[in-house]
């Protein structure tokens, strides 16, 4: 994804103490050295590079096959940059958060360049195929369990996404499998997320 480098370089126009690390991270990312890129982006964030560094670090986590951490790092709001939003969708998809991925892709579809748009289209088709089959009760159970686990691990944002996915998938079944529990978990996760946000 060379465009990510362009995005990062463009953000460096206002040079600061953390920008060297952002640039080094971008170079490592382009060279496929994703662990190094992640470290540089995180150091840049510690040195005051702002929320962009966090999103770049999340993109590196996607490449390192750590999607849940990436989803948590991206946060609930869509990324301003469509390329980063595509990475957010990828993170959701890898974390099996299909609804989250589909929503992100749908919202950003008009802003993608031609190549990313093609990839996004293929990914959405794949998501539709996955969701068109019969939803097993165990799948809903899995999402609820992951949501609870994420809440207990102090990641309410991730917990909320899993709860939403559980509610969405449960609602596709005739028996609305564990929909009430999914609703309760969503409420709990929202409250925890709000409390976390207030502490910040």
């Amino acid at each position: 994804m060379p465009k990510l480098l362009t995005v990062i370089v463009a953000s460096l126009l206002a040079s600061g103490p953390a920008d060297d690390h952002l640039l080094q991270g971008a170079r490592a990312f382009r060279a496929g050295r994703y662990a190094e890129a992640l470290v540089e982006f995180k150091v840049a964030e510690k040195m005051g590079a702002g929320p962009d560094a966090r999103a770049y670090a999340a993109a590196a986590l996607v490449k390192l096959d750590r999607p849940e951490e990436a989803v948590a790092l991206f946060g609930p709001k869509p990324a301003a940059d469509p390329v980063l939003e595509f990475y957010r969708a990828l993170a959701c998809y890898q974390a099996r958060l299909f609804t989250c991925a589909d929503k992100a892709l749908e919202a950003a579809m008009g802003r993608f360049g031609p190549r990313v748009a093609e990839e996004a289209k293929a990914l959405r088709a794949q998501i539709q195929r996955t969701l068109s089959g019969e939803i097993q009760a165990q799948a809903v159970d899995w999402y609820l369990q992951h949501g609870e686990d994420a809440l207990q691990a102090g990641q309410p944002g991730l917990g909320l996404l899993y709860a939403e996915e559980a509610r969405s998938l449960g609602g596709r079944r005739k028996d609305c499998h564990r929909c009430a529990e999914a609703n309760a978990l969503q409420a709990k996760a929202k409250a925890a997320a709000a409390a976390t946000e207030a502490r910040r």
């Binding site: 690390h21 470290v39 995180k42 150091v43 510690k46 040195m47």
Partner: peptide, 10 residues
């Protein structure tokens, strides 16, 4: 200073 940041990230 940067070394400390790397240490924390590590």
């Amino acid at each position: 200073a940067a070394a400390r940041a790397y240490l924390e990230v590590g």
